[in-house]
Amino acid sequence: MAFEDIIMIKKIASITVCAQNLCRNFGAHVVVQGVDLVLKQGEVLGLLGPNGAGKTSTLRMLTGNLAPNVGSLNICGVDLLGKPQNAKAFIGYLPETPPLYQEMTVDEFLRFVAKLHRMQCHEIKVALGDVKQRCGLSGMGKRLINTLSKGYQQRVGIAQAIIHRPSVIILDEPTVGLDPNQMREIRSLIKELGAQYSVILSTHILSEVEAVCDQIKIMHHGRIIFADTRAGLQQREESLEEIFSQLTSSNESVATKDI
């Protein structure tokens, strides 16, 4: 695809992620059931839910790591299931465990990721400096990844997800294992990214969602049981924590009620 085409598509399609009726089961076990997601450019979506709710599976489907049994998936107007390579070029993904080659240096690793995403040599140089500065990795370029602390490894994980300036950034629990200061930094980074790109964020931390997300969805037993905007929540002066515990406490009758 030519560069101009990509720019055109970015301008025309302000809807960056459009997933309809995603379903997935592992054998008889249903993990995700009828999930719909629509995300515009410049929006941050928070995906909440207890453990095993199907958040990670949903994100894996959105990034092409897991094929849905039923459903359609469009990333920036490109069908992810039909043209996976073109669609994946728009996505930056940080899985639960950051995918890092421990024996590479930070620079080597980020350069490899940029090349994988088909960036040109002169672009890479600029992007590398930019992304290191954004993620607080300046001066860490020559360090081997396995000598970095957990927090810094997480930052490298985020850096690899955004180095190629994707339109859609998908972060699976990005602040796990970070200290409060780092968490705050990452949150402000997500906010900053959210202004430019679309961000999907899965997390357990409710305050994080309240701080950065425009859209909030709660998943339970593979379904989306609550969907609202942050503005809507604030208007009705409802607390996310109450809603969350109400909906996801083991009460089955509440859990199956779709909203």
Binding site: G64, N65, Q85, N86, K88, P95, T97, P99, L116, H117
Partner: peptide
């Protein structure tokens, strides 16, 4: 867990 990186890339 680095296979994810390769699979998610275009």
């Amino acid at each position: 867990h680095t296979m994810v990186l390769l699979v998610s890339a275009p």
